[in-house]
Design a protein around this nucleic acid. Structure first.
Length: 446
DNA sequence: AAATACCCCAACCGCAATTGG
DNA sequence: CCCAATTGCGGTTGGGGTATT
């Protein structure tokens, strides 16, 4: 219990990480996965404790991290989530793709708290400061809707300076989304959020909502909790999870379920968004892999709708108007045809998405769990998986893509955040075109 | 220009929960 | 069930950069 044993050992480095250390860690994890963190520093040749390595990976080296300033949408979302979740940073972070709990915590402590106070809102209770100072705690028992509404109204006026779009259009969770289910004054409603719309489902009370909300952000939740069907029930959004039709019904993105429906959430240590965003039931067709208001950290010089992999970020564009005509291509103009990418990805990224009650859906779920198991195996024993893949006919592109993520070790330097020279998309393209070539070779028909 | 104050954020610390022998 | 190892989380710290005096 308590402090990690390795922390007691002498001669362990502390403090800021050097670029060399970063590269060592990144190379090691990319090549072998992290496995047991306590053994990572030794294997990677680092004078650090495993805990420090883990933290460095999660907060800094993970390839899916966004960097740069938080957008107004993100700030609003954090405030909204904090009103619901309090200081549960990891759960808040789970709703913000590419952001870490540490990052959000820092933002909150250094910036958002201040902003709220300036707006006359108590950052702890999310109530008007005047109300808090007067010792009026009636809001506690009556839900948070009023103060949240105040808060958001104030923020609306603030953010309107820089953005002409309406608040409801910009924010992921409409302020209206909170009020009814929080104040307990009406039948509980829960809202699927999209950029411009929200829909209701009269089946959840606040506690269940919170429970689901909290569970949804837990890393293990994709196996057991917060299935989209749990939350969405009668939502008037068409979704056919059990089939390949996991396509958006409209062009708006819904961030809410983007996290809950992902096989690797942002706190996982190997989050590959190629899989996760496919799960996103309302991800726009023009940006299949990421919610359209998020972009990747500029240090990697990746287009906003790119896929981040263990070897860096790669720009994928998917067009998928229907299953048979689906195509997926890299920014290197490498196009994979003939095998529907939705078929491909749904086979390993749909575990949580596959919520259909039909037999077909159940079958898919089983298949998906199998794929997850393979993926898990890959992460923890990549060499054996790689060997097995190379020695047999590929069963799914999933495996090939996963394998391909191991093929470009020389790009590591370019992905390191320390790297001052940004990698041009064309370079990224050429890097991945090699992968695509290997995929093609593996499949023959591609 | 130097000193000081302030701010941001990466990293550390310690506790709780989980896992596995 | 126990216990040690490990992981995850949230609070806190401290170094470095920037702004102010």
């Amino acid at each position: 219990m308590g402090r990690h044993s390795c922390c007691y050992k002498q001669k362990l480095r502390k403090g800021l990480w050097s670029p060399e250390e970063d590269e060592k860690l990144l190379r090691h994890i990319t090549k072998y996965g992290h496995g047991c963190w306590s053994s990572v520093p030794k294997q990677a040749g680092l004078q650090r404790c495993g805990k420090s390595c883990r933290l460095r990976w999660i907060n800094y080296l993970r390839p899916d991290l966004k960097r740069g300033t938080f957008s107004q949408e993100e700030e609003n979302l954090i405030i909204e989530l904090h009103a619901v979740l309090g200081n549960r940073w990891s759960q808040i972070a789970a709703q913000l793709p590419g952001r870490t709990d540490n990052e959000i915590k820092n933002l909150w402590n250094s910036c958002l708290k201040k902003k709220l106070r300036q707006k006359g809102i108590d950052p702890v209770t999310h109530k008007p400061l005047s109300e808090v100072e007067n010792g009026d705690d009636t809001g506690k028992s009556q839900g948070k809707a009023p103060e949240v509404s105040n808060e958001l109204n104030l923020l609306k006026s603030d953010s309107s300076k820089s953005d002409s779009a309406s608040y409801e259009q910009r924010t992921s969770i409409s302020p209206k989304a909170y009020a009814p289910e929080m104040d307990g004054s009406c039948s509980s409603k829960i809202y699927c959020t999209s950029d411009s719309n929200f829909v209701t489902n009269n089946c959840y009370n606040k506690d269940l909502f919170l429970d689901r909300f909290v569970n949804s952000s837990r890393q293990e939740s994709y196996n057991t909790s917060c299935q989209p069907s749990d939350l969405m029930g009668n939502f008037p959004i068409q979704m056919s999870y059990a089939t390949n039709d996991c396509l958006p019904n409209d062009s708006n993105s819904a961030h809410w379920f983007g996290q809950t429906g992902r096989p690797f959430d942002m706190n996982s240590e190997f989050p590959f968004n190629a899989a996760t965003s496919i799960n996103h039931p309302t991800t726009p067709t023009t940006n299949l892999f990421l919610p359209n208001s998020f972009c990747y950290k500029p240090s990697l010089a990746v287009p906003s709708d790119s896929v981040s992999t263990a070897y860096g970020s790669h720009y994928w564009e998917a067009s998928a108007s229907n299953n048979s005509n689906s195509s997926i291509r890299s920014n290197g103009s490498t196009e994979l045809k003939g095998s529907s990418p939705l078929n491909i990805f749904s086979s390993w990224g749909m575990a949580e998405c596959s919520t259909s009650t039909t037999k077909e859906g159940q079958i898919h779920m089983m298949e998906n769990h199998t794929e997850e198991a393979k993926w898990d195996e890959y992460l923890h024993n990549p060499i054996s998986v790689l060997a097995s893949v190379q020695n047999q006919a590929p069963e799914s592109l999933c495996n090939q893509i996963k394998t391909s993520m191991h093929l470009v070790p020389d790009t590591l330097g370019a992905m390191l955040p320390h790297s001052t020279k940004q990698q041009e998309p064309s370079q990224t393209s050429s890097i991945f075109s090699k992968d695509i070539q290997k995929l093609r070779a593996a499949f023959g028909h591609m």
